[in-house]
Design a protein around this nucleic acid. Sequence first.
DNA 1: TATTGTTATACTCTATAACTATA
DNA 2: TATAGTTATAGAGTATAACAATA
Lengths: 153, 153
Amino acid sequence: MEPTILDRLLAISSLLQRDAQRAFAGTSLTEARVHALWVIRHAGPSTQQTLARALGTTPRSVSALVDGLAETGYVERRPHPDDRRAVLVTLTDRADKMMTRMEQDHRNLTADLLSAVDEPDRAAFERGVDAVFWRLSELVRREAVSYDDVETR
Amino acid sequence: MEPTILDRLLAISSLLQRDAQRAFAGTSLTEARVHALWVIRHAGPSTQQTLARALGTTPRSVSALVDGLAETGYVERRPHPDDRRAVLVTLTDRADKMMTRMEQDHRNLTADLLSAVDEPDRAAFERGVDAVFWRLSELVRREAVSYDDVETR
DNA sequence: TATTGTTATACTCTATAACTATA
DNA sequence: TATAGTTATAGAGTATAACAATA
């Protein structure tokens, strides 16, 4: 049976994931940690509550993530100027350097993948990816399928 | 800054992942377990070594995965007819039923996503997704980027 | 000797609940 | 009373290493 668009998208997801895991092999970095670093990179120094919301996880998990990132020198916890309960998680120079390099790799990969698409197809391809992204956002925002009743049948 | 194709693909990956996680919430199923079920569904009853290779993980992890799936009634370990060291991990009726339903949902989602793309763009979109998939396969098969030296600088 | 799957151990990510300090 | 972040505890996934049974 021929792979469908969804099959392809799922395969692309898992390739991207494997690529990331291989890039981080041998370092203390993981996908979850790098995700957190990206959020801070774009949002600036952030409280752990903010990070928890942005990452779609719990404050407890953020504590653990920030612990790991701090131990390995990628972030620092700085006191919040106005709220003595809170901390501002801040990128270190080391993190800044690594993410600058990561952004460059990101740009290179973008160009590489796009150039793999036949030039006459590119515009339609980009529109299609955009359309699928938005449709999928809608679906996920609404009710998701559940296999609950299958299990508890 | 406008999102690039790679940004979009990464976003689509994470949406698909979130969709899956929500579908399994409240059940004993996880992405890793469902992945294993899919492999068995397509390959037929398999040894744990075969599963480890197919899943890109270690025999030890497969032991843990199969333990979980067996406890919750999705697979059974059956003796291998020719090799008394090995077991054949086999789907139960429950797993077969659930996966049949999952395949139907998969088909529905495929149709839904494709219909979100403007009809005149569809052929080019599909060709583009295919091209990106193959290019990415090539890249992952070769050398991957590493952030190792950044860390150990 | 090599292979199959296990036990032992450890690390990461995630989640819930109870707690402290501050707002 | 509510919020920020912690400790406590637990489950899942993954990995390496050592081991028993079998090939």
